[in-house]
Structure formats: structure tokens, C-alpha cells
Design a binder for these strands. Structure first.
Lengths: 199, 199, 199, 199
DNA sequence: TATGAATGAGGTTTCATTCAT
DNA sequence: GATGAATGAAACCTCATTCAT
């Protein structure tokens, strides 16, 4: 019974992830979620109080997976370069694997304070993880650095979502590029060649 | 007569900007737009064919202003450092001045191809402007650099939008930080200066 | 359950028949149909996709009843005179019984291709039934005859719909008149009887 | 000035006839009428108090033309056969010439008592004209005969409106057929040849 | 007389949510 | 727990009509 309950719970989350992710919050109907989950409309409300709450649950599950996996990966590596590459790789690959479900991340419902609160908390946790790496490197302004890094990765991921022909290799290349950029700056390689006094 | 027309047109755009910006597309009712603009519901439709079209017009006006002002500012400055600072300052201050209207930028209607097309074009133009600066500096991968820079700025601006106590000075500080980061890398200043004990 | 479904379905059709019939398509509001059927507005849309479709369903039910009953009656009679009288009686009595719902037949929505198609098909079927009778009589031009007969009946029925004091006996008298007219012509009886001086 | 007034009045009626006739009452917008008439929307209301009244005026002009022309034609002919043929020809040709404007006759507004009154009056006048012919022939039941004849013609005209390839010759053939039918009955020709006992 | 910008009542339809079974 | 028929609020948009110019 409890496994049946949990099975339906998961089925709803999966269906909602699929639909919210590809269509967005407002474009997705609860009846569609129910249908895709293979259950009746009313049943969804036995597991989730409202559409907003369902969206929040979907988001939460996705974000928690993101943070947990990042944690595992970061623990397994050492140098700054390596850690930044791991973060970037994780960020970009995570979205690469979910490129069909991008709407989840920017077609959310407005005015739902719980969701806003959760997203804020998620960002803080993600920030903290990245900040820790920055701090370990001894960089000044680790907070701004972390924020910048996340911003860079977020924008680089846009290519993944918008360009159809994007490959996994492209994603990996960008991950390394981002790490290099934050360690050496934009002129890193050029400076090595022509500006010896500065590097 | 034409001034009256343009007056109403502007009043609607202003009202819609206010409401779409603070509430998002789906949460804003056309009747509210009309009321805020001080006109009747039907009148809105004399100037804009549909809610989507109104949203597009609001977005377009905002984005065009952004690009035009950036152009002017970029023409007036020289060194890479200076140019990057100008871009960052422009980006952050633009949103700083609009911090009450953040929803405009990520609560757009789905499935409106014209809007998608316009936003794509806007991003391309912005990218091109930033890329030109990157290219002038002789940096490798100017495209990825531009994208990264814009991503960084976009994330840094989030502080502005989300933290109530944010000041203009904070915005300016971040602008300079971002420019420095992209020129020197995250460790740029520290490495040069020494400071080994702390980091 | 299925009886409940069919009950609501019928209740809506009945309500719509009443309202479309007495007020016409454009003058009837879906909310009125719902109210008259004793259900909520939204429920109507569970049974009929749109107002047009509801109108079509009402029309179809009415026309099908007309044709089915005609078929039964025609099979039970023999001579031409008798058959023509049956057709006329059916046509006039059908409308006599529905004299409060005349609008159904000429206040239909425009530009609804499915309705146009259905009405065309209905008329063809009716025509075919009448034509068969005409053909059996050996008359020349059975098609034009059938058309003329139907036209005659349609006009005679107008009296029924427009004159309040109309009785069933009046309807029956007209039915016999029409049959006689088509067999003998306008001057049929008179010519036979005498009255030569006037022609 | 008065000629200019009358010019606009006519222009509006012409435009409205065109649009009401081809699209129907509800599907035609006052703004379209104004545009087609080459004047401003508000101007229409200087000549006609409302949309309904404009429709009535259009209808009235058309019907009056119908009756006047019929009168002229009837005065110029003698025998019953000739008179019935003239009526039929007039009826069918009138619609044949207006086959692009059939909506005028069955997409009228509901619940407009003045229109209903006018149409009733028109029908009475038409009836009276046809009845006079029937009376002259000495036929019994001239009223029902007139009504039947008009009904027959009305249905025969449907072919004109519904069949695209209809020619003027087809219309004329139907006119003669209708006249013959009412004089001799459906079996007129056949009976003469083979069924002597019944006639 | 002519204009056409402005009005605002009003109707169709959608869909999250409920609740009797 | 599961169902899905029923609900009804809510929102977009239309268009006949008005009236200041």
C-alpha cells in the first residue's frame, strides 16, 4: 500500500516534471498531468494540495538532486581548477540532460511565496557550495565570484537550450572554458604570450 | 491629435510595463492595464491587437532603450577595462533603475513566436556589442567570453532585484568587480600582491 | 451513471431547443441554456464543444426525428393521393407541434460549415423521399415536383407559425389541399365541374 | 446639398445591401458598412438610427423594388398561364440576379418588431397580387393557392442560390414548370395521355 | 454635416478544484 | 484511496453606439 502510494506520488511528479518542463506552469493543465500519470484528475489532489504546490514539489526534487550530486562530485576532487571544472561540468551537463525541460526554470508561477522562498534557499545553498571553493582558493570577494561563476554557467547553458545541434562535447568544452576564465581572466592565454610582466 | 494618440499609446505602455513588470504576464489583466492607464478596456485594443502584442511592445521598448544607451556609452570610451566597466555599469544600473519591474524579464508568455524571435534578436545584438569589445582586446573565444560576461552581469543584477537594501554604490562596485574579474581572473589581484597566509 | 449522463445531455438539448427555437442562435446565451437545463455554465461544455456544435446537435435531433417519422408513415400507405397527403400532413403537423420554436429553422449561425453540410444533407434526404413518391406516380420532372411540393408545404406552414389562432384542423385541411393541388392543378376540380365562362 | 445627402444615403444602403446580403446581419459590422460606403463610422448614424433600422431600410428598398416591378409586368399580360409565368419568372429572376446576396433573406435580426411587421406586410402585398391572379382564374381557395405558389417559387429559387452552375435558362425553365404545375397539376401531361378515367 | 477615438456592457470559453459515489 | 462529473469565477476580446471637435 505504502509502495503504491509512493508509486503514484512519483508518477505524478514525473508527469508534472515532463509537462511543466516542456510547456511551462501556465500552459500545463492539471488534467494533463493526471492523464500522463495514468490516474484520475481528483487523485492528483490527494497527493498535492494545489497546482502551485505540485510545481514546487517538482522543482524541489529537481534542485535537490542537483545539489546532492554536486556535493558528491566536489568531495572527490582537489585543485581549484579541478573543482571549478567539476562545478561547471555539473551545471552544464545537468541542463544538457534536461534540455527538453527548460521551461521548468523560467515559466514558474508568480506570487507563490513558498516557491520564491524555496528558490532563494536553493540559490543560497548552491552559492555556498561554490563560495566554499572560491574561499579555499584564497580569492578576494568569494561571494561575488561565486555569483559571477554561477551567472556565467547559467548563460552558457542557454546555448544548450536554444541551439538544437548542441553536443555533449560542446557542453564539456564550455565547462573547461569557464573554469579557465575564472582562474586566468579573459586575457589569460594571450597575456602569457605577450604580456609576461602581468601573469 | 497625433499627440493625443501618442499620449494614450505611451500611457498604455507605461501602465503595462508597470503591471507586467511587477506581476508578470499571466497575472496581469487587461482591465487592470486599462484602469492604470486611465482609459476604458476597449481602448487598449485600439492600440494593441492583443495582450501578447502589448507585452511584446513593452518588452521591445525596454530592450531598445537598453541597446541604444549602451551604444552611446560604448562610443565614448577607450581601454578594454573601461569598456567592460561601462557595459557592466550599464547592465547593472539599467536594472537597478527598474528593480521594481523584474518580472518583465522572466514571466513572459509562452508560445508567442514573435516574442521569442524578438528576444533572440535582442540577445544577439547585445552579444554582438559585447563580443566586439572582447575581440578588440585580442582575447581568444570572444563569443564565449561575451556570453560569460553577460551571464555574470545577469546574475549580479539578481542581488539588486532581490535584496531590498541594495544601493547604487553596490551596483557600481559590482560593475568594477566584473570588469576586473574578466581581465585578471579570479585570482588576478591576489597573486600579484602576495597575501598567501589568508587564502 | 450512463443514465445520468444521458439525462444531462437530453436536458441541455431540450433547453437549447427551447431557446434557440424561440430566440434564435445569436440571441440565445449559453448561460441561459445552462440555467434552463438546471446546470452550471461549464457543464454544458462537457457535453457540447461549442455553441455552434450545440446548435447543430439540436438541429440534427429535430431533423432526424422528422425523417424517421416520415419514413414510417410513408411505408404504411399506398396511392399517390394518399402518399402526398401523408407527406403534407407530416410536414405541417410536425411544425404545428413545434410552432413555438420556429426560429430554429431560420436563425442559424452563419459560416458554420458543418451545419451547412448537415442541412444540405437533410434537404437531400427529404427531397429523395418525396421524389420517390413523385417517380412512382410516373410524373415528368419528379425532382422539380418534389422541390415544389416541399416549397408549398413550407410556405403553408408559415400560417401555422405566424397566426396564433391556428388549429390542428386548419393544418389538416392544408395538407389535403396541397395534395389535391399537385394531383389536379389549381383548376382541377373547377374545370371538371363546369365554370367555363371565366377561363 | 440635398443631392449630396441622398448620395450618401444611397451609398450606405448599397454598401449595407452588399454586406448584409452576402454575410448576414450578425456577421456584418457597422464599421465595414461605413468603410464600403466610403464614409466614417459615425456618419452612418446620421442617416440610420441603428443597425437594425439600416437592415430594415435595406430590406424595404429591396422588397419595394420587387413589388413595383411585379406590378408593371403583371399589367402587361393576359391569360392565367401567362400571368403565372410572369410571376414565377419575376420571382426566380429577381433572386437569380441577386444570388450573391441571399443572406439578406434569411439572416435577419431577431426580435426587431418593426422588421417583422414590415416583412409581414410585404408578404401580404405579394400574396394579394398573386391571389388576384388566382381569383381571376376562378380557382377555389385562391389564398391557399397563392401561398402555395409563392412557396413553390421560393423553394425553386433555392437551387439558384445553392448550385453554383445555375444559368438564367435554368431559372426560366423553372418558371414555366411552376406555372404549368399549378394549371395542370403534377400529372397534367401524363394524365392526358394515359389516365383518362381519373381526370 | 462629418469624423473616428473612445466607451463598456456583454458573451464565450477555460480550467483549477470539489465532492458524492 | 480513487474517481471524474460538476462547478463557477474569471478573463479576453468585440463592436454598436456616442460625442467632442
Amino acid at each position: 500500500m505504502s509502495s503504491s502510494v509512493s508509486h503514484k506520488h512519483t508518477a505524478i511528479l514525473d508527469a508534472a516534471y515532463e509537462l511543466f518542463g516542456s510547456g511551462g506552469f501556465y500552459e500545463t493543465k492539471m488534467s494533463e498531468v493526471a492523464e500522463k500519470a495514468g490516474i484520475a484528475k481528483g487523485t492528483v489532489y490527494l497527493y498535492f494540495k494545489s497546482k502551485e504546490e505540485l510545481f514546487l514539489a517538482v522543482t524541489r526534487r529537481d534542485c535537490e538532486g542537483f545539489l546532492e550530486q554536486l556535493d558528491v562530485k566536489l568531495k572527490a576532487c582537489g585543485s581549484l581548477q579541478e573543482q571549478l571544472t567539476v562545478i561547471a561540468g555539473h551545471h552544464l551537463m545537468y541542463y544538457y540532460e534536461r534540455k527538453q525541460h527548460t521551461k521548468l526554470f523560467f515559466r514558474a508561477p508568480n506570487n507563490h511565496s513558498e516557491l520564491v522562498a524555496y528558490m532563494t534557499q536553493f540559490m543560497e545553498e548552491y552559492m555556498r557550495a561554490v563560495m566554499r571553493v572560491m574561499q579555499d582558493s584564497g580569492a578576494a570577494e568569494p561571494e561575488l565570484l561565486a555569483e559571477s561563476y554561477i551567472g556565467t554557467l547559467d548563460r552558457l547553458k542557454m546555448d544548450i537550450m536554444l541551439r538544437p545541434g548542441f553536443t555533449e562535447a560542446d557542453a564539456r568544452k564550455r565547462a573547461e572554458f569557464a573554469a579557465g576564465l575564472f582562474i586566468h581572466g579573459a586575457l589569460g592565454s594571450r597575456q602569457e604570450q605577450t604580456a609576461p610582466e602581468r601573469d
